[in-house]
Design a protein around this nucleic acid. Structure first.
Length: 595
RNA sequence: GGUCCCGUAGUUCAAUGGAUAGAAUAGAAGUUUCCUAAACUUUAGAUGCAGGUUCGAUUCCUGCCGGGACCA
């Protein structure tokens, strides 16, 4: 039972009988703290129907609701706002149904399938802070859709071919002395990343040297030996040269095992991985087909383009004159392949930074022009960049924040603060370690997910390790305290039956506030899915935890003389705990039993 | 040159066109006989500028200023 939708229906009926007209879209919102009531109907828009002032309109509806419904027991009118007080029996009934419903907070299957792509790294560099926002966001949106009843396929596309990986390969071959992850003790992705940096360093030095000898800068950029080596490798790779392909495979293998460890720590997973080396040829085919069909056109130099000037965009290159593909070519191939692999998906979501908005606009247009019906069901889940206090992250300037390092730092900080509070006296080493991870990663995930994805956000390492205030650990802590209450309830042998609630006749305002929030959880879930925004869940969980803390402070549960009230409070504490667990799970944050 | 995004307390974030714009931090002042003080209570502090749309604008529209991204 959803209280708000029941209310909407009742109000709709009321408007119908009082004013004799069909009610328009109703504005129902939470009642402002300072007024009595929990739900408020905004009556200004209804004055057109009633042909009366806002106050009178509100009063008429209020009178009708009190007289003709069981849910509304009282009302008051402030200006055009009709504040409704829900009867206590309705609250109890609502709560009983939530308590009895084992699937509260999970919507039944709707038979729809969607695909969510996220992460999608290059194989020449380790994952960094931006990838963390991407992964947490994509993973969380997937889980939100699952709880909304969708069958979700999590995938990524790995950019495993091209000049960038050849740069790492060239540097490794020339200067690596056969170094491996085993011999160096470095994670595979870190090792390959090291040679990517090495390439850049050598390349710059070689250019400088050539310029010194009188070459122009442009020529030097082409003639630098290490660049020639990389380009040579790319050509050999495209012609399936065995040695080059073997090296490529080996080095990518190192990267994948490194990534795997990072994903494991992040707590994200994928159903299927796509590799550009396996999709770019399909992309080329599709471009050639499009050329035949006249969707694309060829320039004199042989390059292939699409003209999007009618759509308010410009011309876009799809295949270079030398026949090599660009990102767009590969993405065309990948999209088509995915709809072949999963014919039942009704939507494809791309979790990619907002600097690629133009790219995806173009991609979806091209797919539509190629005649693919599903193109309009493709969605770019775009998110803002993560800024550092020092400015933008730049790998060349060494101002990237490495994903592994950051996670380790967060865990170490959680350990430090937990030890300072002296909270781990009873825990074994294994349990303590697990707790530090839950807290450290919880803080990090919450920090990155609480912000509206569309918005650019600031990551201040100094402030982000804070575990007080509007943070993940705040919610984890509130949850742990509820668990302590439930444990004590158990020790006292308190058993709760639904029938016990029937004897409860009054509800405190704090309790009502919590019930109101709980009753809204499922609509928040739907909203989060609709908006592709885990931040809605994150903020919900925070508000719930905060309200519970206030309740916790105000009302000493075990001093309650009335046993049915005690049971009621224990029961609704347990629903708050499971709802917190549920919403935090959607963010990928685990909640400890104690902390 | 063109397209798009963003400007809210000192700082980091909220606010389906609705009530006196919410939190958190940092600042000031309090609360530990009672289930875990990573908590709670009190206090001070903000919509870039100028117009427009209307009962009502942080939100929608126009212009400007400031920050960012993308396309050739």
């Amino acid at each position: 039972m959803n209280l708000e939708s029941v209310l909407r229906q009742e109000i709709s009926n009321a408007v119908n009988s009082v004013f004799g007209q069909e009610a328009p879209a109703l504005q129902v919102q939470a009642t402002n703290q300072e007024f009595e009531g929990s739900h408020t109907l905004v009556c200004f828009p209804l004055t057109r129907l009633s042909k009366k002032g806002p106050e009178e309109t509100a009063t008429m509806i209020g009178d009708y609701l009190v007289a003709n419904t069981t849910a509304v027991s009282k009302f008051n009118v402030v200006k055009g706002f009709l504040n409704l007080t829900i009867s206590e029996s309705t609250w109890i009934e609502l709560f009983s149904s939530m308590y009895a419903n084992k699937n509260f907070g999970t919507l039944p299957s709707n038979g729809k399938e969607i695909m969510v792509e996220y992460s999608s790294p290059n194989t020449n560099k380790p994952l960094h802070l931006g990838h963390l926002r991407n992964n947490f966001l994509g993973w969380s949106v997937s889980e939100i859709y699952k709880d909304c009843g969708y069958n979700v396929h999590k995938v990524q596309i790995i950019n495993d071919r091209g000049i960038h990986i050849c740069k790492s390969m060239a540097a490794w071959k020339l200067f690596g002395n056969g170094e491996t992850p085993e011999s160096s003790g470095l994670k595979g992705d870190k090792l390959v990343g090291k040679y990517y940096v090495e390439f850049d360093k050598r390349y710059k030095a070689e250019i400088a040297e050539l310029v010194e000898k009188g070459s122009t800068k442009e020529l030097a950029e082409k003639e630098a030996p290490i660049m020639k080596a990389a380009v040579d490798m790319l050509q050999k790779w495209e012609h399936h040269d065995t040695g080059t392909v073997d090296l490529w495979r080996t080095m990518n293998g190192w990267v994948y095992s490194g990534f795997e460890a990072t994903y494991k720590q992040m707590g994200v997973d994928f159903e299927k991985l796509y590799y550009e080396s396996e999709t770019y040829l399909l992309g080329k085919e599709e471009v050639m087909k499009g050329l035949e069909q006249g969707v694309f056109f060829q320039k004199e130099d042989g390059s292939i383009w699409v003209d999007l000037t009618d759509d308010g965009l410009d011309q876009k290159l799809l295949l270079r004159a030398d026949g090599t593909s660009v990102y767009m070519t590969q993405d065309i191939g990948t999209a088509i392949l995915r709809f072949r692999d999963f014919p039942n998906i009704s939507r494809q979501v791309y979790t990619v930074g907002n600097e690629q908005e133009y790219h995806f606009k173009v991609l979806f247009l091209i797919l539509a022009k190629l005649g693919y019906e599903w193109a309009k069901e493709c969605y770019h889940l775009s998110y803002g960049m993560v800024d550092l206090p020092s400015g933008k992250m730049k790998s060349r300037e060494g101002t990237v924040v490495d994903a592994d390092d950051l996670m380790d730092e967060m865990i170490a900080e959680a350990e430090k603060q937990t030890r300072e509070l002296g909270k781990i006296d009873e825990l074994g080493d294994g349990e303590a370690k697990e707790l530090f991870e839950m807290i450290g990663l919880g803080a990090l995930k919450y920090f990155l997910l609480k912000v509206d994805p569309k918005k650019r956000m600031l990551f201040d390492p100094e402030e982000s390790i804070q575990l007080q205030g509007h943070t993940g650990p705040f919610i984890q802590y509130a949850h742990a305290r509820i668990k302590a209450i439930l444990r004590k309830g158990n020790e006292l042998g308190t058993t709760v039956q639904i029938d016990d609630f029937k004897n409860v006749t009054t509800i405190e305002p704090v309790e009502q506030e919590l019930l109101y929030m709980l009753s809204n959880y499922e609509s928040k879930l739907e909203e989060a899915a609709r908006e592709y925004s885990p931040s809605i869940i994150a903020n919900f969980a925070y508000e719930l935890a905060k309200s519970y803390n206030q309740f916790y402070q105000m009302i000493p549960i075990f001093n309650e003389a009335d046993p049915s009230r005690l049971k009621f409070r224990i029961a609704f504490s347990s629903v708050v705990a499971t709802t917190l667990e549920k919403s935090m799970r959607l963010l990928g944050i685990r909640v400890p039993e104690r902390m």
